[in-house]
Design a protein around this nucleic acid. Structure first.
Length: 224
DNA sequence: TGCCAGGCCGGGT
DNA sequence: ACCCGGCATGGC
């Protein structure tokens, strides 16, 4: 089995097991961007509470988020944790978004994806995972999202080194998958689901894992 | 009760 | 170039 077939088989096994997940939960691209920042190292349930608070105050409209002061914003997003630093990060992004693109997601995503990624990474508070989440889930651009689940699952299965960097892990996926937005979208969602309910941090038991079909020889052969 | 959750930054080696 | 402490709420 070639590496590409192997990775596709992993994807198909997850899809068969969990069914279509249809990420990202969010009514608009802008809401997805806000959610991507709020969910940094935080469970989605907490983020939803914060999002609902913002929605009630009509703050999921770019101009309104731009206008509100940071202290008030911090109180509204309290349930998502790290609320002071996240309020600052939202402010950093919205300033960039209004000033560079006049608050238009269409304008922001209309240009080159790689260039936009570099710009997003310059915004204090947006790192590689948040940038790729924005590009993929809000902008529908083919950027594969790597997160703690991805690292844990694939290093536990010996397909990547446990010391692999974000970039190395991302390369592992994009070099062995078609550059397909729908595939990237659903694959990451499936990985998160697996990490949440089976391949958890305290359950290293892989016996009932839907992707535990590789032999130990194959794992070594495919590892990067 | 303690640990974990869809990271990232800044300061120190 | 790494390493680490800090950031903080809510659920199991």
């Amino acid at each position: 089995m070639r590496k590409k077939e192997m990775l596709l088989k992993i994807y198909n096994s997850l899809y068969d097991y969990f069914g279509p997940l249809k990420w990202w939960p969010g009514d608009s691209p802008f809401e997805i961007i806000v959610g991507a920042i709020l969910t940094q190292n935080t469970s989605w349930g907490n983020v939803e509470k914060a999002i609902n608070n913002l929605k009630k105050e009509y703050l999921l409209k770019p101009q309104n988020l731009y206008n509100i002061n940071q202290e008030e914003l911090a109180q509204l997003i309290k349930p998502s944790g790290y609320y002071n630093i996240k309020a600052q990060r939202l402010k950093n992004f919205i300033t960039f978004f209004i000033e560079e693109y006049n608050g238009s997601v269409e304008k922001m995503f209309s240009g080159d994806g790689e260039e936009l990624r570099r710009k997003l990474l310059k915004v204090n508070g947006i790192g590689p995972e948040t940038a790729d989440s924005i590009l993929l889930y809000a902008g529908e651009k083919p950027f594969f999202v790597v997160d703690a689940y991805t690292k844990r699952i694939f290093s536990r299965h010996r397909l990547i080194s446990e010391h692999a960097t974000y970039h190395q892990i991302q390369e592992f996926f994009i070099q062995n998958l078609d550059q397909d937005v729908e595939l990237y979208n659903e694959f990451h969602a499936q990985i998160v689901m697996l990490g949440k309910i089976i391949c958890t941090s305290k359950n290293p038991d892989c016996s009932n894992c839907p992707i535990a079909f590789l032999t130990s020889m194959e794992r070594i052969a495919y590892s990067v």
